[in-house]
Design a protein around this nucleic acid. Sequence first.
RNA 1: GGGCGCUUAGCUCAGUUGGAUAGAGUACUUCCUUGACAUGGAAGGGGUCACAGGUUCGAAUCCUGUAGCGCCCACCA
Length: 932
Amino acid sequence: MNEIPSRYNPKETEDKWYKSWEENNLFSAKSNPAKKPFCVVIPPPNITGILHMGHALNNTIQDVLIRYHRMKGEESLWMPGTDHAGIATQNVVEKEIAKDGLKRQDLGREKFLERVWQWKEQYGSTIIHQLKKLGASCDWPRARFTMDEEYSKAVRSVFVALWNKGLIYQDDKVINWCPRCQTALSDEEAPHSELQGNLYYIRYPLRGQSPSIDFAQDKSGTVPYVVVATTRPETMLGDTAVAVNPKDKRYKKFIGKVLILPLINREIKVIADSMVDMEFGTGAVKVTPAHDPNDYILGKKHKLEFINIMLADGRLNENAGDYRGMDRFEAREVILEDLKEKGLLEKVQPHQLSAGHCYRCHTLIEPYLSRQWFVRMKSLAKPAIEAVKKGKIKFYPKRWTKVYLNWMENIQDWCISRQIWWGHRIPIWYCLDCRKEAFASTEEPKACRRCESSNLKQDEDVLDTWFSSWLWPFATFVKGQSPSIDFARDRSGTVPCEELKYFYPTSVLVTAPEIIFFWVARMIMAGLEFMKDIPFGDVYIHGTVRDISGKKMSKSLGNVIDPLEIINDYGADALRFSLISIATGGQDIFLSKEKFQQGRNFANKIWNASRFILMNLEPSLLKGQSPPGTVHCKELDLCQFFKKEDLDMTNRWILSRFYSALKKVNKALDTYRFNEAAGILYGFFWHEFCDWYLELAKPALVNRKQSTENRNTQIVMYKVLEKSLRALHPFMPFITEEIWQRLNQDTGISEYQNTSIMVQPWPHIQEQMVDKKIEKQMESLFAVIKAIRNLRTEIEIKPEQEILVSIYPHAKIDRQLLESNRSLVIKLTRLQDLKILDANNRPTATISDITKDTDIYLHFSGIIEVSKEQVKIKKKISEELIRRESKQKTLENPAFIKNAPAEVIENIKNEKKELEDRIKRLEKLLDELHCS
RNA sequence: GGGCGCUUAGCUCAGUUGGAUAGAGUACUUCCUUGACAUGGAAGGGGUCACAGGUUCGAAUCCUGUAGCGCCCACCA
């Protein structure tokens, strides 16, 4: 026992216990009708991922929930897994082969994919190991990967199901194109961000006018050109019209006229459309149907030509004339130069705009006309909107509901095809012989359905990664199922899938606001479509982790605080506890390394309190003296150890406080107020259990004789610690396990046969131990102790110097309370003696103070500065007078008396009376001071 | 252009349905190496709860507006 070090060393415990939990299968959960299910599916991290603070927060919250519910006796499953992360992973591997001077095309599709799988096998579970470091109690043997065979089948089934319903279609549209990743992206994958650019005003001459004419000097009134404003001048090469608003008087005469597109010398028409904003720019807009979503609409409407001027990599193609082969940004500069030379660049204005950027590589997105696959979303969205509106799915905090609904109500078709290789290949086949319509199939078809030819070709594209993620809450459960699985029917029992029936819908989804659209919304749609039921009842949205100045943490900014570094320096429990304490109500959290000290210090506090308790515990006493089977990890009525009435106040107090705190913790956890739960436990354990209770208990413990007092104190101290450990376990799994095991071992209590604290029951509230009266009394006692300490500090004398205190208890306080705790007060205030007075007679040479129910006189062999003492008391009196005055005023207000609830009035009356009492007593102290 | 969040102690933030002398962590001041813990203990100082109106007997808390900061969404070239 004595070898317990005085500092908690996480390194010696964390890996050891994690291993033990895994070896004993303690994270495993399975269909168990005898128990209530509780299920959380992990937001699957990318296989390219490395643990950052966002993960740490996200997974700590999930682990707290899982561990809490597991201890509450629910069959708790935390379903883990990883996401193949199409673009991100492909990028990583491409970078890798680039070191050998290779491109993916050099290897070919098959060889390249082999390389990716290799990479995945080697590095793909890095983040899983890191989550283990964090203490995540996932059911690891279940871990799924979005490209597992079964999972892939599910993806294809879903695709085919939607295809059969006519919800999937192929079309040429202007989509978001990342020239670096060379693939289409969905709108969500191309978030807009502000950009400082220019608005370029370019002159488009009327046909018949020489382009070389010096326009600037033409002031005759008939302007031979139209000026358009654009932020992307290079796209002019693809212009096929100029549009003006039909109501715009300035341009009436130009409508229908033909302009000569500069540099290219294409004839383009001036068209009229109400879409054009007369206020913006010149009111005349160049129309580039193949490179702008709006222009695309105009192009369709006015039957314009669609001219694609760009290659997949962002360079200009053969339609760009002399500019062919140039990169889009380079071309912009050259074009501007050329325009300027020809006198066609009228002016340049600085202009702030926002434009899409690739969410993977941050490259500026190019709107790009291409043939892609889409999902029609409107009909899928409808039930998903209903489910939230009807409260079947609830967001915490509530405000995200609106964000969700707003997006869902304006939902656009989802571009799901990606021009990359790593991912689920689109299950569409084309017959190269009959060349009829393409068809979808869950399995590779042997022959064309029309002409029976086997000369088939699968679509080259792969599906958006999120097209697999949206099935996560149920596709993770299908293992060894038939590929043509009909999820909904499966639940009804046609195809047995016990686990899905048992765990679905899952309980709660924990995630960050950034992926509400990407993932949460789509999972709800998929769940309702394929399972005919919601995927989860609650959605808890936590904040985004930022650095101390409010910036998002990112490697490029160099402001990252690495969770693994924190774990290494402070321990996983410290990291977890600090994160939970900081994360409030889904608010963004601002981190600095220092913030983790709180968690570390708390862990150390728990460690040392436990160390103290272990050092003062007589195992034989606990083992031998208690009734058979009583010191038990199961929740037994504490009354089996002792009659509540036989306990002294201190013990009754701490038990009462523990259960009062526990009640609040339960409530907080049940409503996703994690920081509050952590805060209550922190406050209880540190400031009540350690600061007060253990100090109060010391005298009883020093007395090693087997007195009832000693025995009871040992049991209570032990019990409160043990229960606190259990309550703290979801937050700090490692240290609580370590100590719990030591308690187990050192007390030699054989009833602890279970392997771990994590499978012990959550502490049960023993209502009979809650005693508000005792709590009040102890507070009075604490007030006395504090007042004495305070007086002590005031006189600034040496610790050794003799000090005596006499107390006059007022009627309110139980004299008995002081009498029976006299020696405790002496100990905690380091007095020589404490007298409890019968009459309120002030002895000489003292300073004094009052508490709510006592007058306190402190005597010492020094000189009192009477004037200073007077000032102190007078100040107090005047403060109290002000308060009394305000209460008085309130009570004199007839409206208050009329409207306020009786209870409030009563309170104010009491408070006023108390204030008056205090004032009277303070005045008396002042009086006595004059006498002395 | 919409929507949302924030503004409380030097700093970082709590404050549940309106009814305390407005809390915590950290920093600061003084004292304490008293055998659980200096990653500690004791005692302190520090806030007109962004601003202006309003509702109410009563507002940090509810309503309206203003300012600043920060997010998210949107096809203004």
